[in-house]
Design a protein around this nucleic acid. Structure first.
Lengths: 182, 182
DNA sequence: ACAGGCATGTAAATAGTTACATGATTCG
DNA sequence: CGAATCATGTAACTATTTACATGCCTGT
């Protein structure tokens, strides 16, 4: 079976408890979002495919006139998920427009590169704040230390990045001072 | 003008010196690759578009029977590139299958999660080695400190990540020992 | 009544990778 | 001569985002 990593995100999310497409989107946004995002345009069609493949199964969870289908993982689905978890990770990519701009910043004045660094730092610090707010709700689960571990990876990473931006700003500031005084 | 970030990578690469599609690919792989990759399937069509928009211009650089076109940035292209550099960065994403696997690892035994961490760490350390090898060639350019700065960001990031994996491995190891002795 | 959130879904566009075809040149 | 690398390009596929359409339910 050839599934995309996004399919496994969905499989993983319904393995914890049955969830609707809408709920999956919400929980992804509160957890894996910073290292693996997913949109409705992926989630709904993928749920259909997983259902046809027998890896999840839809359960009607409508309330009155409002339709809702929650999906639960099947035994096959859980097996598939575990097999995937055991294979070494492959995809790893990053797209960071800030570093790209910095890379070409010799076309600009140092003060303008510093603006890029500041914008990057601001963004990372905001992210740290938002991730920290999520920390309490993931604490104290001895059965699952991984959710918190991964959240803290996000916090640490963004803190490192913000700090790097600050250090580079100082470096640029110092070297333009040097130039001026020579 | 609405250009993709990948278009700006190409624009930036030809702004330093005229380059062919093949050369752009090679230089991307040796520099921006870890935070912004590009494939032939993007580069060649994009060069054609940029050329039609008058942002780059093709120069015949064939040698004998072997055809080759190098592209140089135009005045319009340089203006467009600078305008983009001055706008605050937007896109920033990460897709890290390892963190995803770790996130769902409560379905497995701790020893298996540790395997994921080890594979992640191995990968990051290899990347550090490869990036370090590129350091000397980027050193000593007082006109362009940015190339080296960004390369070092890559090194630092991957070192941080490798270290994080190591610490998490220790943490998991310790908590399984605790459980066993209680 | 209406705003906002719940809920499902699709169409269209954009982005990006992979694999392939083609042929020249260089080096051992 | 053969392998590797130079060089350009495209087709098919996969992935992903964005915007939209539709309608229900809850609280003010």
């Amino acid at each position: 079976m050839e599934l995309s990593a996004t399919a496994y995100v969905i499989l993983g999310m319904v393995s914890r408890e049955p969830r609707s497409g809408y709920e999956i989107k919400a929980v992804v946004d509160q957890s894996t979002r910073f290292f693996w995002a997913a949109s409705y345009g992926q989630i709904y069609p993928e749920l259909k495919r997983l259902s046809e493949a027998g890896l999840v199964e839809g359960i009607d969870a409508s309330t009155g006139e409002r339709k809702r289908t929650r999906y639960a993982i099947t035994a096959d689905g859980e097996q598939e998920l575990k097999d995937w978890l055991r294979r070494p990770p492959e995809t790893t990519e990053m797209r960071e427009e800030g570093l790209l701009k910095l890379f070409f910043s010799s076309l600009l004045k140092p003060a303008e590169a510093i603006e890029t660094l500041r914008a990057m730092r601001r963004y990372r610090l905001e992210l740290v704040t938002r991730l920290r707010e999520m920390e309490p709700q993931k604490e104290g689960r001895p059965d699952d230390p991984y959710t918190l571990m991964v959240l803290r990876a996000g916090i640490e990473f963004n803190e490192w990045f913000a700090d790097w931006c600050e250090r580079m700003e100082t470096q640029l500031l110092e070297s333009s001072l040097e130039k001026r005084s020579s």
